Structures are given as structure tokens and as C-alpha cells.
Computed example of a mutant assay.
Amino acid sequence: MSPPAAAPKHVVIIGGGICGVSTAYFLATHTARLPTTKITILEGNKIASAASGYSGGFLAKDWHGSATSDLSEMSYNLHEELSNKFNGQKEWGYRTVDTLSIETDATRKSKKSSPLPWLENGLVHSSRSLGSHKTTAQVHPKLFTEFFSKKFLENPNTEIKFGQVKSLSLNPETNTPKSVSYSTISNDNDKQEMIDDIDSIVICAGPWTGRLSNDLLGSKIGQKLSVQGHRAHSIILKTKQDLTATCLFTSMTLKDGSAAEPEVYARPDGTTYICGAGDDEPLPETSAEVSPSPNAIAKLHKQAQALSDIFTTEQNVEIVAEQACYLPIADRGRPLVGKVRGVENVWIGSGLSCWGITQGPGTGKVLAELILEGKAKSADISKLAP
């Protein structure tokens, strides 16, 4: 692939999650030598309004398959670099963690000692290390995404617009983007807006990528970019005691014999993020319409209380949030990162599944390289080409 003949004059990035914001940030910092290039984030709701605002922020360096291993390792290291550069420990809760897999069974007593001081002795029947401070870490993804959306705006010729994308017009001579229309709400009425004189589009719309690709590019191209949404639930609890820097992947048997596998991430701000699937529903039209299932939330509270009494009301636990989001799952089973075939100057970064926070910054960096230099230099994404 040869480098572009000329620098893009106006890049529009659809989506204000971690992939879209990271792409915008790295484009803006790359284009410091290209002062005429304009970059716009177009987001339907608010920055980090979907999974990037509600996921747990667990990062893993070496848990990935061959198609994404290089991107994941690069992006994991990039998280550390960005934290060192911008004080991520303070700004978005970056820290390395120990990660354990534990099996609990409340129906029978274990003779093993608890691997953690806040887990009751006799509950954990087995535990093993899944990652150390060298290979696993965490961030608060909402704070990360919001921080870099602001850093992006510190660069010249950058902007963020809010509205629902409606259509894309292509230049018939070059088959490149020409303009994009979107709607905003003004005085309870839809107001149609237009961004003209563009020449490049990046689609980072998470679980809405499939629908949007069909609407903007037609079904022939859109069917190759199919991404679905799978609803995941989470609760955030504030306990009286701070927990160790540990992330848990559990396999639980509760007192009633039911099974559960919640993931538990202790955060440096004193909260604990607990997540699990359940009660999936079709993807709504917008991120503003996403809501949790009361049944799924109740199950998470039950599982948390079965794991440790520090999560019970008797211990004055504070419920910080009860929420849901949709993970973007690409139909083909691996992310879509690269240039879209069948149209010019359209790129995509989506379908990263539960690894969106780990891979998000790296995805943004390689997309910026593709757009400005014609080649992804920082990681091998050859198996992720759409």
C-alpha cells in the first residue's frame, strides 16, 4: 500500500468512544506538521456514552489470539506510555494489577486459606494466577476517554459535534466522502445539520457499526462490516475498606446451588466494579436508550454478597451505579481495523468485543498511521483488514 497522494483535508470520525477518540487524538498529534487538516469527532450522544463509559477497564497484555496479539501487546504498552506521559494514575486510575481465577462453593466448606484478605476463609476452593503486575492492568475507561477527548481539542483544527448520523454523500468522480448529514434535537424538534467539504471518514461506532455501515455505504459493503451488540451488566460498589489491586475472574456456586461467573475489579478510587451478562435484548437505536435489566442487576448484587460480606448492606456498602452497555461483536469473530474495500478514504475500527479498552488506543494509533502514511507501522493488523 502506497502513502496517500496528499494529506486529507477533513477527516470525520463517527463515534466518541475509546476507539474514535484515540483515532482522533493520534491523528491530531500526527498532523501537527499538516496544519491544514481538519479533524471532527461526530458523536450521537456524549463522549464515552456506550461501552467505553460503562465497561470495567481491565487490560491484558498476552491473553489474545494470533489475529490480535500484536495489536493488543502494542496497545497494552501504549496504555503505560500514555499514563507515564499524562499522569494516568491520577487522571484515569491507571495501575497494574494481579489477576486471579477463583472457584468458590458456598454449599461446602473449603480447607484452603483465602487467597485475599477480603475473601472469607473456607469459601475459595481453588485459585490460580492469570496475570501479574507485568501483564495485567486497569483503567477507568470513561475517565480515559474523556481525558483524551479534551487533549484532542488542544490541537488546531479540531472539533467535536453531537448528533445522529443520517447519510453520507460520495464524490461520484473519486468515490470518496464528500459530506455527512446528521440530526440534532433543538426545542424538541429534529434539526438537520451537514458537514461539508470532507474527504475521509472513520467509522468507530461500536455495536452500531453494522447498522451505520449499511445506511451509509449500502448493503453490499455494509454486510462485510457487520457488528452486533451483546448486552452486559455491571454494578459499582463503594466499600468501607479499600481492596487489594486485584482483578478476579470467578466460577461460583451459590448456596442455592446456582452457578455464576461474575468478574470483579477492585479500583484505586475505593470502588469495586462487578460485571456479568444476562437478559440480553436487541440493540436499541441509540446509546441514550440503553438501560439495565432489573433482574440481571439483582443477580449481580446477590453474587457480590455471596462472594464477600463487605458487599452487604450490613457493612454499609454504597451503590454507586447499576448499569448496562452493549459490547461490539463482529460477526466474523475478530475486530475490523483498517481500510474499507469498495470505497475510497473510508476506514473502520470496531468489533473489539470485551477487549475494546485494551486495544482502543492501539487501534487509534494504527488507523492514524494508515490514514496519514498509508501503512500501519506500530502493529501487525493484516488479519483484521475489513
Rank of each mutant, 00 (worst) to 15 (best):
K111I: 12
F148T: 06
Q164M: 01
N155E: 14
P141H: 08
L100H: 00
F162S: 03
R128D: 06
T176W: 03
N171K: 02
V165M: 02
T176V: 00
T96W: 00
P172C: 01
T158A: 08
H125R: 10
S127D: 07
F148G: 04
N175M: 15
K150F: 05
S126E: 12
Q164H: 05
E173F: 09
E154V: 07
E120L: 14
V165I: 02
K90F: 03
P177Q: 09
S114L: 07
D98K: 15
N157A: 00
K109W: 09
K178M: 09
P141A: 09
R128K: 13
L153I: 03
F148Q: 05
P115Q: 07
V139Q: 09
L143M: 14
V165C: 03
A137C: 08
P156S: 06
G93S: 14
L153V: 02
E146C: 12
T176C: 15
E159R: 11
P156I: 03
A106N: 11
N171L: 02
K178Q: 13
L116P: 13
K112R: 11
E103G: 09
W92P: 15
P156D: 00
G163S: 01
S129G: 15
K161V: 08
E120K: 15
E103F: 09
P177R: 10
T158M: 06
Q164D: 02
P156E: 02
T107R: 15
W118T: 03
K109D: 05
T135R: 10
S110H: 05
E103D: 05
G131V: 11
W92I: 09
E154R: 12
N157Q: 14
H125D: 12
R128Y: 08
F144Q: 04
L119C: 10
R95E: 13
T176D: 00
S113G: 06
G93N: 14
E173G: 10
K161F: 00
V97C: 10
V165W: 02
P117E: 08
Q164I: 00
K151W: 00
T135I: 10
V97L: 15
S169A: 11
E103H: 13
S132M: 01
V97S: 05
I160M: 01
E91I: 14
T107D: 03
V124M: 06
P177D: 04
S126I: 02
F148V: 07
L123F: 12
F144A: 04
V97F: 05
T136V: 15
Y94N: 02
